[in-house]
C-alpha cells in the first residue's frame, strides 16, 4: 500500500468537510461537516504513525477523537442555546453584530 492513497483520501474528506461548513446553513449540519474534517486529520495521523512506526500518531489520533467529542458536545450546547432564543438554527440569519 502506498502512503499517498491514505493521504489523498484524507484530503478529499477534508475538502468535502470544508465545502460542507461553507455550504450548509443549518447549525447541526455544520457540526457534522466538522466531524468530516477532524476524521480526515485522524486518517493522516494514523497513516503517518504507521509509516514512521511511531506510536505517537495513534495516540495523537486518540486525543483528537476525545477532544472532538468534547467539541461537538459544546457545539451542540451552543446551537441549542441559539435555537432556544431564536427558534432557528439557521446560521446565515445570525448577523446582528457587524461592521
Amino acid at each position: 500500500m502506498l502512503l499517498v492513497q491514505f493521504l489523498l483520501l484524507s484530503s478529499v474528506l477534508f475538502c468535502i468537510g470544508i465545502y460542507g461548513v461553507l455550504a450548509r446553513k443549518n447549525g447541526v449540519m455544520v457540526l457534522m461537516s466538522i466531524e468530516l474534517i477532524l476524521n480526515a486529520v485522524n486518517i493522516n495521523l494514523v497513516a503517518f504513525g504507521t509509516m514512521t512506526n511511531n506510536i505517537a500518531g495513534e495516540v495523537f489520533a486518540l486525543f483528537v477523537i476525545a477532544i472532538a467529542a468534547a467539541e461537538v458536545g459544546v457545539g451542540l450546547a451552543i446551537v441549542l442555546l441559539i435555537f432556544r432564543n431564536r427558534s432557528s438554527v439557521d446560521l446565515s440569519s445570525i448577523d446582528s453584530m457587524k461592521g
Binding site: 470544508i18 446560521l91 445570525i94 448577523d95 457587524k98 461592521g99
Partner: peptide
C-alpha cells in the same frame, strides 16, 4: 474593509479563513 469583510456572516468569515 469593514463593510466588505466584517458583515457579521459566519459563512463569510469561514470562507475568508479557508
Amino acid at each position: 474593509t469593514r463593510t466588505i469583510i466584517q458583515r457579521g456572516k459566519i459563512h463569510q468569515y469561514a470562507a475568508i479563513m479557508f
